[in-house]
């Protein structure tokens, strides 16, 4: 049964589409700039200021990166860090957030505070490093995976998602006689796919952006993409340029290509996860 669109609804649609299109245009043009520079020659970049369509065309930046041993190994490292790290993150976080969402659980308040407190207070890098060293994790990806295994922020927000799952579901499952594990796997996880997809994405991005912990814990040949990228984007320090000022071939095209290539994997993965948080989950389907 379809209700005819009223005047108010039409106005609503105009406002919505207008705002969304304007926002997209604003988001797009700096992106286009980055893309344009990544295909431009240095001369054009230096002389033209801001532009969106290059007059020259070169693939030199992309070719340089593709043939750069440092870039390819950084890419591999980033993939390892992200895939394993995210699996670990989302597993631990889902379990913990689900457990803490149980209002009837004794000690829940204390546990919640224990998690929350780490958001505000941290011991700093030195003691954390010493723990990592004591566990023998230095120069191993485990140092990166384990030191960021659960984000307190994500755990707390995910918990609040679980709390909005209707209580009747839990009750009816209990009558069926299924335990908590079955309840989680059979009912809660399928119902919470939007939330799980969201936090998977958050963790993926966090792992993909690994920078500082890599520098602290890893060896030269284990460095991820963000370290590589940052080193291309930094300017030479004036105090050192007196001495070195090495003529690196980091043309604007190469720098912008690095930005594009670094962002690309997460842009490509987005549509796959997007399905989950764009579609409402039919409660009825699960119940039935």
């Amino acid at each position: 049964m379809r209700v005819r669109a009223s005047g108010a609804d039409r106005a609503f649609a105009i406002v919505v589409y207008g705002l969304v299109l304007a926002a997209s245009a604003l988001a797009l043009f700096p992106l286009f700039y980055v893309l344009a520079i990544s295909f431009s020659t240095e001369t054009e970049y230096l002389t033209r200021g801001f532009y969106l369509l290059p007059r020259t065309f070169t693939l030199e930046g992309y070719l340089y990166l593709m043939s750069h041993p440092g870039f390819m190994s950084a890419l591999r490292n980033s993939v390892s860090i992200s895939v394993v790290g995210t699996l670990l993150n989302i597993t631990l976080t889902t379990l913990m957030a689900y457990g803490l969402s149980k209002t009837w659980l004794r000690g829940r308040k204390t546990l919640n505070f224990v998690v929350f407190f780490t958001l505000l207070f941290s011991g700093g890098i030195i003691p954390t490093y010493l723990v990592v060293q004591t566990l023998g994790l230095l120069n191993s990806f485990w140092a990166v995976w384990l030191t960021s295994a659960v984000s307190a922020f994500n755990a707390i927000v995910m918990r609040s998602f679980f709390q909005s799952v209707p209580k009747e579901l839990e009750e009816s499952a209990r009558i069926d006689g299924s335990g908590e594990w079955l309840l989680l796997i059979r009912i809660i996880v399928p119902l919470s796919l939007p939330a799980i997809a969201t936090f998977t994405l958050f963790y993926l991005a966090q792992n993909w952006n690994t920078y500082f912990s890599a520098i602290l814990y890893l060896d030269n040949d284990q460095m991820p993409l963000q370290v590589f990228l940052k080193q291309m984007l930094v300017e030479d320090d004036p105090s050192i340029s007196n001495a070195s000022s090495v003529a690196y071939p980091y043309t604007p095209a190469a720098r912008m290509s690095a930005i594009v290539l670094t962002a690309l994997p997460l842009l490509l993965i987005f549509p796959f996860l997007q399905r989950y948080f764009n579609q409402g989950v039919m409660l009825g389907a699960v119940k039935g």
Partner: peptide, 27 residues
């Protein structure tokens, strides 16, 4: 009822203790 739930929380909790609370001596 609660034991499995506590078990779910334990791995995450261990993480917080080892990598967040022990280093807090650094404060």
């Amino acid at each position: 009822r609660a034991l499995p739930v506590y078990l779910m929380i334990v791995p995450g909790l261990l993480f917080f203790i080892v990598f967040k609370y022990i280093p807090m001596v650094g404060i």
